[in-house]
Design a protein around this nucleic acid. Structure first.
Lengths: 206, 206
DNA sequence: CGTACTTTTGAATCGCATCAAATCTGGTGG
DNA sequence: CCACCAGATTTGATGCGATTCAAAAGTACG
């Protein structure tokens, strides 16, 4: 059936997009090493990562690769709404799946449907909030400090489900997985943290 | 004159806001230690920092203060557009000036004026892009690496003007000013960086 | 059962934070 | 003009914590 793709749309997209745009979405798998788009090309569609990992990168002045974004779930290059050309490459670093949405459809709908525009703004607000918190987190020096901050800001009620295990969380915190394992162990020993099957719980004055 | 406040509006706001909203803006000074808003209160206006420094913070689980955002220039708590209550305090950490814009006016204008909504979205896109780059920067381990990344992403043509001197740049990079001074000195000695009066220039293969 | 991955612990090294102090700078008032 | 101060800038010495390299133990899956 043609609508099988729609049914697979992740929750966030179903709540965000007008139905006529949902109908134009196309899911497709992406393999590690694949380039989803290239610097200089004209954006034709908005990409949403549902699983796997994609990084946006470009070459710095002395040839070093500068990573601008690493996404495991969410839009990549939302800013392509405004720009004529991509200013970086999109490289798949972990096989997964993406949803492609025609850019023109989004632009038209944003101009015509103020409700959609409002939801889009709300989504961007959330993203800005999240990113600001992440910056504050990354500017902390200690791993334990960062971990607790993560649970405070991304979790609810001092609880945070860990999806891909601690290892993937480590790169989100900007530390090695060894350092994170040790930090968790120490916090548990102090009694500041408890660890259920797939959950981290802050013990403090809750 | 009453319009003296309008004339003082910073460039970004003049380009972003419809004229009828610019007329409703009110600049006012804020002193170090002042609370611009408090967790739990209902947002009535959108605040834009023109100079000074404001942090958004709230109390974490074990009483530790969690800083969510630190702003020297730009909106604070854009997300108050969507939320009924503030979820954090806004504390002035360096005396300066803010512009207050009535929230209802913004909401109405965003719904009625699709051009304004488009500009607002573009602004948020820029912010998201900048924040993502900053996250990647902060997740780098070396100071030199971070500095070069900053110049690559925030500067143009490998050149970056340093506004408040190296010291203020240090906290933006999430390092101590001593470490930054040393990194700059080493990069200059290698010949990878040059330093003009108020400018940092990457020397590499440009 | 074997392979691949995550999780865990150990030991050595390195870079940054920290504390300290000297120099340089611009601005203010005598 | 000089004295003086507050801040930025610079250099030095020390310690801690994360990285790094290494290896073992646990776990999922075909």
């Amino acid at each position: 059936m043609a609508d099988s793709a729609e049914k697979r749309l992740p929750e966030p997209l179903r709540k965000l997009l007008p139905l006529e745009i949902q109908a134009q979405c196309a899911s497709s798998p992406c393999a590690r090493g694949e380039l989803l788009f290239r610097q200089g090309k004209k954006p034709a569609q908005m990409l949403y990562v549902t699983c796997g990992e994609v990084v946006l990168q470009r070459l710095g002045r002395q040839g070093a690769i500068v990573v601008l974004q690493r996404t495991r779930r969410g839009f990549i290059g939302e800013a392509s709404l405004d720009s004529v050309r991509y200013h970086c490459d999109a490289l798949v670093t972990m096989s997964g799946e993406t949803v492609a949405i025609p850019l023109v459809a989004i632009k038209q709908a944003l101009a015509a449907d103020s409700g959609f525009a409002g939801r889009w703004i709300a989504m961007l607000n959330q993203e800005v909030k999240r990113l600001r918190a992440q910056c504050e987190r990354l500017s902390m020096k200690g791993v334990k400090e960062r971990l607790l901050h993560l649970i405070e800001t991304e979790g609810s009620e001092g609880r945070l489900p860990l999806g891909g295990g601690l290892k993937s969380m480590a790169s989100e915190l900007g530390v090695t997985h060894e350092a994170l394992y040790r930090a968790v162990a120490e916090l548990e020993k102090i009694g500041a943290l408890r660890r259920r099957e797939n959950l981290l719980v802050v013990v403090g004055g809750g």
